[in-house]
Design a protein around this nucleic acid. Structure first.
Lengths: 342, 342
DNA sequence: ATTGATAAAGTTAACGTTAACTATATCGTA
DNA sequence: TACGATATAGTTAACGTTAACTTTATCAAT
């Protein structure tokens, strides 16, 4: 039996026109109920699968969304991506995932590639405060949503954690122990989330009357090794008790390792907090005090936001009215989860 | 300035034919060096990006690969995917990633969707020993590579860890302590990797003259919670010292948590091993004894294998000769990493 | 019976690209 | 000078789908 791969095959098999089949499959009102059923049944019987490439080509739009994330093997983003994917999938979209590794050039290259693929939209975690990506997306006229970071606070549509508040809550929590020494292992300085965390950290210190000392903030920590090395250096020059606040659970794990190697106890000698509440650590001792970030929900929200953008754009096209939608910002509430390291 | 999005725009801008531009961009020998440079320069100047959808449509093949994995937020697969993605990207392919969550029906649905997207190939982690997926892929004539598991040992092309050997090495290591009680928290029973691990476990026991007792093997553990619960149940009926072998580091983390909660010491009371060597745990105390699996390399290898398949298929088409390639199996060597839990 | 409205089908053309084919210019050689 | 070979260009058609338009059938109202 010959494979049925085109509308034409269906049409010939049924003795109707190609358009009729197309209309039936797309639930167009032109087709009578009887005929529609006939066609749908036959299509199912021969296991016809529409050619999405041809459809995308004809319609000049795909059901493909580009996801440009710094690193999909980071458990934080893995969860975010999962939320995105599941949400988009419900709406019939598929995801092309790309890892930028915080490299602006790669990010820019990817956006070009996505342009070539004619993606319907992009969800992006922009690398260090670069504006080029935004510019490109606007130039290419691709709807996009930023996730976990923004490029400029009032522009763009994005979904982020309230980083200022997260850091504020953590720092307050640590300040409450009455120890003035609160180190902060922060992320890359150009990134909005790192900047906002720093602001929150400062606000808490101020509130507690603790003077801000820039040499207690380590910038540029991205992974466990950075956390480990930074903590080691801190321990060389500083004697516990003191507190440490980490930009991520990853960094915290590295820092804890360094602290334990020196024979210090958590939380007795060093009170330490992470951020993200990545799943795997919930079973690891000592159980990490951290900020619960709704990773899955951030993914879901950004996907929903993007779909909203896509739909409003389609409406615009249809009623020519062109009511340009405003940028939307979703800021998720962080939750302080106090466990054993503080 | 009008956006240049089509070959036609380039052609008009330069006063040559569309085909000439197409040939120049595709490095076709028909075009003189001078003209080629002229065209390429102009294309670059106006930032022309070829329409991949149109190209895919015309050529009846895309540069898109479907990745169907049980769960991208599992750090093991996250690494594998990363390897796949980076390798495919070098060859100009992009990845559509889908999570099956070990659900055969979803897997089958995804394969259909990928068919519709006209993907060039598929990399798949098949859910529990189902043959339908393979059948579908063969029916649809989509080249595919299985990763981390196979459906049938001698069929298909796949990249796996030598699971039998991995479990054998782990079990031998635990046997060497002279304790007869070696529990095994295993994965879903239908999956090839779980079956092979069980075989390796049995082989080691036999070699050490320890009799195999089926009630010491817990099947169906997939995550930390399963590890935790299973270990709890074991501890209710069994008093340390004994040994535990876990299908994954994830399960091991859960089990360790249960053991520590009961106040037992690792490795003194319980010697325990994981599998996978997921990165984040390398800084976590007690440092887990585990099997190092070349996750990234497995991803790279499966991507390379798939590209080989795609290329050989293209050759087939060209020289009509149809020299069908054999199935290929790549079996990666596991490495026992002895750390602190054993 | 004629008209007009509507329902249900069919025809046509186009989306951007490239493979296959055709046309023209150039050049070396008999 | 004429010939074929070759280099370099252009023309045409097609990939599968659907939007826009056209045609035909049906039926109610005059």
């Amino acid at each position: 039996m010959k494979r049925v791969t085109r509308l034409k095959d269906l049409a010939e098999g049924l003795g109707v026109s190609i358009t009729t089949v197309s209309k039936a499959l797309n639930d167009h009102p032109d087709i009578s109920a009887k005929r529609k059923k006939e066609i749908l049944d036959y299509a199912k019987e021969v296991n016809y699968i529409p050619n999405q490439v041809a459809r995308s080509f004809r319609q000049q739009r795909t059901k493909m969304i580009g996801i440009v994330i710094s690193d999909n093997s980071n458990p934080f983003y893995a969860r975010v991506i999962r939320g995105i994917e599941e949400t988009l999938s419900v709406h019939g979209y598929h995801c092309v995932v790309m890892n930028s590794h915080e490299d602006v050039d790669k990010e820019i290259q990817f956006i070009g590639e996505l342009r070539g693929l004619n993606v319907a939209g992009v969800i992006l975690t922009p690398a260090s405060g670069n504006k080029k990506s935004r510019e490109l997306l606007k130039n290419y006229d691709i709807p996009y949503v930023l996730v976990n970071r923004y490029i400029e606070k009032d522009e763009d549509t994005y979904v982020v954690l309230d980083d200022e508040q997260a850091a504020y809550m953590t720092a307050r929590h640590l300040c409450s122990y009455g120890n003035d020494k609160i180190f902060f292992l922060n992320f890359l300085p150009g990134v909005s989330s790192a900047q906002n965390r720093l602001a929150g950290y400062k606000r808490a210190l101020k509130e507690y009357g603790v003077s801000y000392e820039s040499n207690m903030v380590v910038s540029g920590c991205t992974n466990q090794t950075d956390g480990y090395e930074s903590m080691k250096r801190i321990l060389e020059k500083n004697k516990p008790p003191f507190c440490v606040m980490c930009y991520s659970d990853y960094i915290a794990i590295g820092a804890i390792c360094a602290i334990q190697e020196r024979g210090f106890n958590l939380p007795h000698d060093v009170a330490l907090c992470g951020n993200d509440d990545i799943g795997i650590l919930s079973f690891v001792k000592p159980r990490l005090t951290t900020i619960g970030a709704p990773k899955l929900r951030m993914g879901i929200a950004s996907a929903e936001l993007l779909i909203e953008l896509l739909e409003s754009r389609q409406e615009e096209e249809e009623n020519e009215g062109a009511i340009k939608k405003e940028e939307k910002h979703i800021v998720m509430k962080p939750e302080l989860i106090i466990r054993e390291t503080s």
